[in-house]
């Protein structure tokens, strides 16, 4: 009986130590485990000089309503927002089927930080994002089209 209890204690201890170490690892890596940054996080990082000009990042948020514009040769531009901050995206290529205004999307590409001085001689930073890849997110709601129409959702 004693040997059995010893085994239970050893295994429980092993699992507890593992849980703690995995938690600490994931906590330390929390900035790298996330798949994309929101516009607000990027604005904050740029103002803290954590992101260099021309670095490759993923930016996620909603496509701002009435911001989508189509240019020549598959060139598109739109605005990604998290309802606090907005970043302009330019992209040329094929968009996923679910891409719409108001839809959650993730843009993968290079950020351009343009530094300029405004008329009061204060250094300002403006962000431009050149996406090389656009991914669409969909939410966890599943329903037939009739139901979504009844709920007043536009798609």
């Amino acid at each position: 009986m004693n040997r059995r209890q010893n085994k239970i204690i050893t295994i429980s201890f092993l699992v507890a130590v593992l849980c703690c170490s995995i938690f600490l690892i994931l906590y330390a890596l929390r900035d790298n485990v996330i798949f994309f940054y929101s516009p607000s996080e990027i604005e904050k990082k740029v103002s803290n000089d954590d992101i260099a000009d021309g670095s490759l990042i993923r930016l996620g948020g909603l496509v701002l309503e009435d911001s989508f514009q189509r240019g020549e040769d598959n060139y598109v531009s739109f605005v990604i927002t998290d309802l606090k901050n907005e970043i302009n995206i330019s992209y040329s290529g094929i968009l996923p089927d679910l891409f719409r205004e108001g839809q959650g999307v993730i843009a993968e590409g290079y950020i351009e930080i343009i530094k300029f001085k405004n008329k009061d001689n204060i250094l300002k930073k403006q962000l431009k994002f050149n996406a090389s890849n656009i991914l669409a997110k969909h939410d966890e709601n599943y329903m037939p089209p009739e139901v979504s129409e009844a709920l007043g959702l536009e798609y």
């Binding site: 798949f35 929101s38 993730i106 991914l135 997110k137 969909h138 329903m143």
Partner: peptide, 20 residues
């Protein structure tokens, strides 16, 4: 916990399942 491309759970979550 993290931003992911994968959507959150629809059924095994608090509240009613968000699936028809």
């Amino acid at each position: 916990y993290w931003n992911t491309l994968h959507q959150p759970a629809s059924i095994s979550k608090f509240g009613s399942p968000s699936i028809h």
